[in-house]
């Protein structure tokens, strides 16, 4: 009797394990997409605060820098759904530029990797939920630098 019970218990455990594996497999398509071209930093993009986003990007300390400029970026955005942001860095050996918007549901908006030969200046358009500070975070020679600009939003771009 006891032996039978043990077998049942074992096979039961086996089923649970299979179930877990299947569940993990079922989650694969979403994860597979991330790996499609290169790793997408889900941990950093899923964060809900600036501090968490910075932490997930491995940024422990970012120095304020006057060598990072906002180009063609408005003081006031009439439409939060389309806010032009231009960031240019004069810091030598700039390796990447990240855009972080502090009042957005997910503050990290974008990370641009700038290979040697490409000018450390990019422009794009972002959505802003409300008036917020935009942080331009630059990694140069392994160190982090940040510049901040407040953009006033008259109409939010996330709630719709």
């Amino acid at each position: 009797m006891d032996e039978n019970r043990r077998k049942v218990m074992q096979s039961g455990a086996g089923v649970t394990l299979l179930g877990l594996l299947a569940a993990a497999g079922w989650l694969e398509p979403a994860r597979g997409a991330d790996l499609g071209a290169q790793a997408w930093n889900r941990a950093a993009f899923d964060t809900h605060s600036v501090a968490d986003a910075m932490h997930a990007l491995g940024i422990l300390d970012a120095k304020q820098s006057k060598d990072i400029a906002f180009v063609q970026t408005p003081e006031i955005a009439e439409n939060g759904a389309v806010v032009p942001i231009g960031i240019s860095s004069n810091i030598p050996k700039t390796e990447s530029i990240a855009i972080v918007i502090d009042k957005n549901p997910n503050p990290l908006a974008a990370v641009f990797d700038v290979p040697a030969g490409t000018e450390p200046a990019i422009s794009t358009r972002v959505k802003m939920a409300q008036t917020a500070n935009i942080y331009a975070v630059v990694r140069a020679d392994g160190k982090y630098y940040v510049a901040t600009k407040e953009i006033k939003v008259t109409l939010g771009g996330c709630g719709g």
């Binding site: 993009f45 908006a109 974008a110 990797d113 290979p115 422009s123 358009r125």
Partner: peptide
């Protein structure tokens, strides 16, 4: 150039 984007990049990205 390579980039990673989140949901905050505008519709029809530029």
């Amino acid at each position: 150039l390579s980039a990673q984007w989140g949901t905050a990049v505008s519709k029809n990205p530029f």
